Amino acid sequence: MMQNPLKWSLFALPASLGLFFGLFFGLSYPEIVRKGWPLTTCHVLSSKLDSRYCCEKVCTAGCSVVTIGAPLCSSQISLVNNAFSPSRCASDRSTCPPQIGQVCDGGFHCCSNCCDTCRSCKIKCTGHPLVCTQSCSSSPCRCRCCSSTPQQSCTVSCPSCYSVDLTLRFGSGPTRGKARSAIYHQDFGKDEVSSKQFLDSHPISSSSRCFYNPKNPSQVSFDVSFTPWKWAVVSIFGIVPLFLNLAVLVTILGVIPAYRAINAKLAERRQRDVSETAFLVSNQGPQEVNDISSKEMAVDLEGTHDKGYSNADSDDEVPLLDAKGVHKF
């Protein structure tokens, strides 16, 4: 891991930008564009519920090896998905795929991992005087595959998946221009109940509001609201990493230099104030100090002179006699 945060942030910036734009234009932007589609009324001309096989491999736990000569699971799955139909199988058992439930070769599989045990410790100091405590924890590290098989034993499972196709007509009328037709397709996966409910809510000859793409009128949607999970993925894996990376760059390249520059200015101003104060004190010198002392002595003498008149009756001071007093003696 890089020790320099700036290097780490500059290295991660292209990755975070690529991740953000990839997720945004792949998931969110199509929904933003679709949100602006014009509203119209769609009339259902025909409807069809389609079923198909969506096969997958189911592998056993552990390291069981398939028998020699077993077909590859990928080829069996492709064959069933393209050549067989659940609806035909339901009406004629002879058309059902024989590959369902058969053992196939699932390819390489790591059966178990072997890991070392790493110990990490943290020291925390609190209080005054400092009291330090150490806490340690163990976790697996340096994991590697220590048991594997090149031909894992699996079976072919083929559940049915469902989709609905609607033939729609929209845009007819004197103010709506020429009527247009479109095929609406929606895949429901393995959810047969939802597919039948959607088909029941859009029967033939029914009308409902819909939205169409003005640049490609063959694209029609009954719902243009945003998908929450798509925006959650874009936010968590696209916006948050990009925001954190930009925050680090702004802090390193902007906030910290500005903070240091302000502190340097304040320190320079404090140093200048101290220098000016020291300069003023040094310019006063001994002469000003003597002047101050002389002024203080003059004040004391004036105070003493006044005291001679005011304390004439005191025992410690000799009163001054005028000429009449001297004549009497």
Rank of each mutant, 00 (worst) to 15 (best):
A182T: 04
L199I: 09
C210N: 06
P129N: 02
P241K: 06
C145R: 02
T167V: 13
S148I: 03
R180G: 02
A179H: 07
V224Q: 13
Y184D: 12
S120N: 10
R119Q: 13
C118M: 05
R119E: 14
V234C: 06
P140R: 07
Q197E: 14
K122L: 02
A179K: 08
R176Y: 09
T126F: 10
P228Q: 07
C121G: 10
P214F: 10
K196S: 09
G173C: 07
P174Y: 10
S181I: 08
Y162H: 14
P214M: 08
Q134H: 04
C121I: 11
F243N: 02
D191H: 07
V234M: 05
N245P: 09
A182H: 05
C125Q: 04
T175R: 09
C161S: 12
T155Y: 05
C141Y: 09
I236M: 11
S153W: 01
Q152M: 10
S235Y: 14
F188K: 06
N245W: 12
F211D: 01
S148Y: 12
A182Y: 04
W229K: 06
L166Y: 10
S112N: 10
S195V: 01
W231F: 15
S163W: 14
P140D: 05
W229G: 02
H109M: 06
F222A: 06
D191I: 06
C158S: 02
K215N: 12
Q219N: 07
S208K: 09
P159D: 02
S195E: 05
G177I: 09
T167M: 10
N113Y: 13
P140N: 08
C141I: 06
S112M: 06
Q152K: 14
S218T: 13
F226A: 15
L249C: 08
S235G: 13
G173A: 08
K122M: 03
I239L: 15
N213F: 08
D116M: 08
R142F: 12
F198N: 02
K215A: 11
